[in-house]
Simulated scan of single mutants.
Amino acid sequence: MSGTPITNQIRRLRFEHGEMTQQALADACGVTRQTIIALEAGRYAPSLELGFRIADALGVRIEEVFQWSRQG
């Protein structure tokens, strides 16, 4: 089960973006590979700025990367 109500499509989008590695995405966003791993696993919700950086690096809108589920 996810640790945050924010889900994402980072892994799928990385592969659709020329099979971009976690490290390449991390480098493009100015974070560590461990941050990308935690995001993909749903253990970490990014800051708004990081969310936009990830979307930009993947060439998509932020809504295509992240989804929010209201809990309760």
Rank of each mutant, 00 (worst) to 15 (best):
A38D: 11
F52P: 01
I54T: 07
A28V: 07
L58E: 09
G30W: 11
Q23I: 09
T4C: 13
A38H: 07
L39A: 03
M1V: 03
S47Y: 11
A24P: 03
M1D: 07
A24L: 03
G72P: 10
E63P: 10
E49K: 15
A45Y: 01
V65K: 04
R12G: 02
F52C: 07
R12P: 02
G18D: 09
V31P: 00
E64L: 10
E16S: 08
A55K: 10
A28F: 10
R70F: 13
A41D: 14
L13E: 11
F52M: 10
L13Q: 09
Q71L: 13
L50I: 06
F66M: 00
R14N: 01
L50A: 10
N8W: 00
A28L: 00
G51D: 06
G3D: 14
L39Q: 00
A26T: 09
R53N: 10
V65G: 10
A41F: 11
Q34K: 12
P46H: 05
R53K: 12
L48H: 12
E49M: 12
E64N: 09
L50M: 09
Q23C: 07
Q67C: 05
G30M: 13
T4E: 14
E49D: 10
I62A: 14
G18A: 07
M20L: 03
V65F: 10
Q22H: 11
S2F: 13
Y44Q: 13
M20F: 07
F15N: 08
D27Q: 11
H17L: 07
G72W: 12
Q34A: 12
V31N: 09
G18C: 02
R61N: 01
A57D: 05
Q34C: 00
L58D: 04
T4A: 11
L25W: 06
G30Q: 14
A45L: 02
G51M: 10
